[in-house]
Design a protein around this nucleic acid. Structure first.
Lengths: 222, 222
DNA sequence: TGTTGTGAATCTCTTCACAGCT
DNA sequence: AGCTGTGAAGAGATTCACAACA
């Protein structure tokens, strides 16, 4: 007698790649809306996103929205559907630890962007950086992490501290009840299996570019 | 009469994922060396990198290095081999455009890290941000991009400007002869096919974390 | 006609499992 | 005994190609 709630509606589990692309599509679609475009074909969205039309259609299948043959997708409806699929209906708050250049950059990026997902507190160990507001986000001393996270019911952590401090911050986050971490420190974190970690490794990204750019040079030379 | 140079030695083309992991392994191995560890098994490296042992061995196969059965890999030799494989032997310079918080963070990350890969010039349109040195890197006005890129033979570009300026910066980079771009702006760039672009989309990363963290909550609740 | 939605085929990446080495 | 290197199997993601539809 499985009691399947509507959100759990028997959809196949969706891959990480698809989630990333849906986030991208949504952003592109918002841009279109602001230019008063209101319908789009998979083909055109694919072009904008640098993907194939078939892939766009598959990804959209995952959210459970349907377009109309010959008229494509209604952008407004599609954005709403993606939102229903991606966003936690209750909204989600994030806590950022490490108010250096990178931390500030990330705060800037997100200030007042999405109602369902925002950085609601920032932390640092340096008293000179705390007790004020940066990009609309209040800053606290790291010692207050647990209190603030539990008070504000924060579920997401963002780590923008140097590598040597990252593991200890991750541990504090997990102890405070955070269940997803975006990690910018260039070391893998050890966390319990039920905590989702996404590494954003800037060094790795640049080394990849260097490698493939190098290949481009050799091939151009042939 | 194909004249195959030693570097082109008939290896299968290596996947993007493998390149990324090799960059990670190298970083982990440097850490071990600094702790005077000098041999390692695929199994242990896998544990550190959060991968399987088989995958580590496959990735190392790609660089053409061999360990010894029962004694594992010599870390020093392995680091050198990965370097020979990943790094352009001539070294590579990168140019960063956009000296905001994110730009400074990226400059910090790379200042004096790798001899074969460094950010050798930074650019902005704001005169208050140029004509000085940040994290050992000289800063110029964006108008000088082409001159500096060609003077210093720069092949890699890093875009840390706001979304609305990114496409125009990318175009300037391509015109200056850059053939690989690391893009932090949250829009896909349109560049010629022979230019490699790696998008580092911070918004997408955070939305992914939010999605999977949300899943963790629902599953914990069941 | 020109689009979507999707089963099936294909392609790519990962893991298995074991021969061969030390 | 215990590791590496790797062919082969397996999983997963992408693309093909076409029926159904407006």
């Amino acid at each position: 007698m499985d009691n399947v709630s509507p959100e759990d509606k028997q959809r196949p589990p969706v891959s990480e790649r698809t989630i990333g692309r849906l986030s991208l599509y949504r952003r592109l679609l918002y841009n279109l809306l602001s230019q008063n475009v209101d319908r789009i074909y998979s083909h055109d969205l694919a072009l904008m996103a640098g993907r194939t039309a078939a892939q766009v259609r598959r990804d959209i299948m995952a959210v459970g929205y349907s377009g109309s043959p010959n008229r494509g997708y209604d952008i407004h409806e599609l954005v709403v559907s993606i939102g229903l699929f991606l966003d936690n209906p209750a909204g989600m708050g994030a806590a950022l630890v490490g108010i250096g250049n990178l931390g500030r950059a990330v705060l800037d990026f997100f200030s007042g962007r999405r109602p369902k997902l925002s950085i609601v507190a920032a932390f640092d160990v340096d008293p000179k950086k705390t007790l004020r507001i940066i990009s609309e986000c209040p800053c606290y001393h790291l010692d207050l992490l647990r209190n603030v996270v539990q008070d504000k019911n924060i579920r997401i952590g963002i780590i923008t501290v140097p590598a040597h401090a990252a593991q200890s911050v991750a541990q504090k986050m997990v102890e405070s009840g955070i269940c997803g971490i975006l990690n910018f420190a260039p070391i893998p974190l050890r966390v319990p299996r039920n905590v989702y970690v996404e590494d954003n490794d800037i060094t790795m990204s640049l080394e990849k570019v260097a490698f493939f750019a190098g290949k481009n040079i050799s091939e151009a030379a042939k």
